[in-house]
């Protein structure tokens, strides 16, 4: 990246920017200051914490995988295909980004719950039930997180130079081959960035998860749920769990910053 030309910022502007930065940094400082470092290791290796950490990893990675498999094609359709009702459909599928997650969880319950509109036939026919299961956690996280990936990839598909695809087509490559050998590599960084955003959102998911999937250790109790319930019993544990989530997310975001997030 070429170095940005130095600019003299107006003082007032700098002050506001500093205030904005402080607004995000101060709560994190609070967490670090209040962390009971002395008992940190013991608290973090408690079986309930290990279970929550393991479950959070499984479900957030699962949600990210599903989001890639389903979300990249959806982004491609949004970027390349015109059809009636596209605007509305696109709005509907990005709604979870602004919807309160608890509302998302209620919607999932009435749709896919055991007595849900679609959940009841699924349960009667296949005995499949999502609430109170790890699969339900993955569904809730996917619901809330996939839009981040779809929007990121769609933006990249729209802004890429389509002449490469056209050239490949005129040279006789099939649509599938063009997608695989030209389109995918070009939007690869955006897919990576979308995956990171999607994973980070899934990892932090709370409202939809506790509403739709419930809360049970080892089955549906992810780190955010464990942190919330720990707050009622032991603030130290809650702070520590919060810091753990923070640490994981920060490491990943910083590590991937240069590789992927630039594409956003």
């Amino acid at each position: 990246m070429p170095a940005a030309p130095r600019e003299r910022a107006p003082i007032g502007f700098l002050a506001l920017a500093g205030l904005a930065a402080a607004f995000f940094v101060l709560p994190l400082v609070g967490l670090v200051v209040r962390t009971p470092w002395a008992s940190a290791l013991a608290d973090l290796s408690a079986p309930a914490v290990i279970d929550a950490l393991r479950l959070s990893m499984i479900t957030s990675l699962g949600a990210t995988a599903i989001s890639v498999v389903l979300g990249v094609p959806l982004a491609w359709v949004y970027a390349r295909v015109e059809f009636p009702g596209k605007l509305v459909l696109r709005a509907l599928t990005t709604l979870p980004m602004v919807l309160p997650p608890v509302v998302g969880g209620i919607a999932l319950l009435v749709a896919f719950g055991r007595r849900g509109v679609f959940g009841e036939p699924l349960f009667d026919l296949f005995g499949l039930r999502l609430p109170f299961s790890t699969a339900g956690v993955i569904v809730a996280e996917t619901f809330v997180a996939m839009p981040f990936l779809v929007l990121t990839v769609e933006a990249a598909l729209r802004s890429m130079d389509r002449r490469y695809e056209d050239a490949a087509r005129t040279l006789g490559a099939s649509r599938v081959r063009v997608f695989r050998t030209v389109t995918l590599p070009l939007v690869g960084p955006a897919i990576g960035a979308g995956m990171v955003l999607c994973w980070a959102r899934a990892l932090g998911e709370f409202g939809a998860t506790i509403t739709f999937a419930g809360n049970f250790r080892g089955e549906t109790q992810t780190l955010p749920l464990a942190a919330y319930l720990a707050l009622e019993q032991n603030v130290d544990t809650a702070v520590l769990l919060g810091l753990t989530l923070l640490g994981i997310s920060l490491v990943v975001l910083v590590a991937l910053r240069d590789r992927y997030l630039r594409a956003v």
């Binding site: 319950l109 719950g113 055991r114 609430p131 506790i210 419930g214 549906t220």
Partner: peptide
């Protein structure tokens, strides 16, 4: 499931979950 408060227990029962 271990719900976060008593109302959440009631809603899980009233929804049939």
């Amino acid at each position: 499931s271990h719900e976060a408060d008593v109302k959440a227990v009631v809603s899980k029962v009233s929804l049939g979950e």
